[in-house]
Design a protein around this nucleic acid. Structure first.
Lengths: 110, 110
DNA sequence: TTACTATATGATTATATACTCACATAGTAT
DNA sequence: ATACTATGTGAGTATATAATCATATAGTAA
């Protein structure tokens, strides 16, 4: 793979990682794992302003993480690919590794 | 799980996702998958300023993605957990999904 | 000691992101 | 038509991030 193409790929990948790299957005993704939801229900669930939630949703759509459809007045968002949930598994491995280290350190100190 | 604890978890997870959400940092992680490297070799490989690379590395260490050790003058960085590489698999799934859609759209247009 | 190398970091600037408020739009209901 | 609701977006502000340059530190070698 040529260098310029590789760089473009890293940029695309970074965009996706960035799109999920925010606590509210992760909470939204976690909420949507059980099925599609409209903006106002998402906003209520995570306890944030609708306009703010709307922006976060737009960002995730443009990053290719979510997709949406209209239903009357409401706009319904859903995960574009359930594979995005693998992120949680992957992140958990990193956090577990960290937690193990902390507990090991704690044992040495006590 | 109580709400405050859940929020804290999302923040920790977001920090990790953010730590890999940058093209240069992804390139560094990709470079380190084959083994540990010192700062200057990393900087040369990705073609960026050492001071800049040093900051990116520090950021990833504090997010728990990398760890480092000293060896003489050099500081050697490595992946703290190879599981971070699963991110690439996960991201690829999202990108593939997107690519499939684009090609389907293209077929309709031509 | 001095000279050199690798790395980290303070200070600065530029840019990006997050959030809020106010308003516009679109659909629904009366 | 008016009134209402859900959503999106412009404008502004605050904060975070990225990059660069200059400098400091730490180890090496002469």
């Amino acid at each position: 793979m040529p260098d310029s193409r590789k760089r473009l790929l890293f940029e695309k990948q970074a965009r996706i990682a960035q799109a999920i790299g925010h606590p509210l957005r992760l909470e939204i993704i976690d909420f949507l794992k059980n099925g599609e939801q409209c903006v106002c229900d998402i906003a209520e669930h995570i306890g944030a302003e609708r306009s703010n939630v709307s922006r976060h949703l737009g960002l995730m759509v443009s990053a290719g993480v979510l997709e949406h459809r209209k239903e009357g007045l409401k706009v319904i968002y859903r995960l574009k690919c359930p594979c995005i949930l693998d992120f949680f598994t992957c992140i958990s491995s990193v956090l577990k590794k960290e937690a193990k280290e902390s507990s090991r350190l704690l044992k040495v100190l006590c």
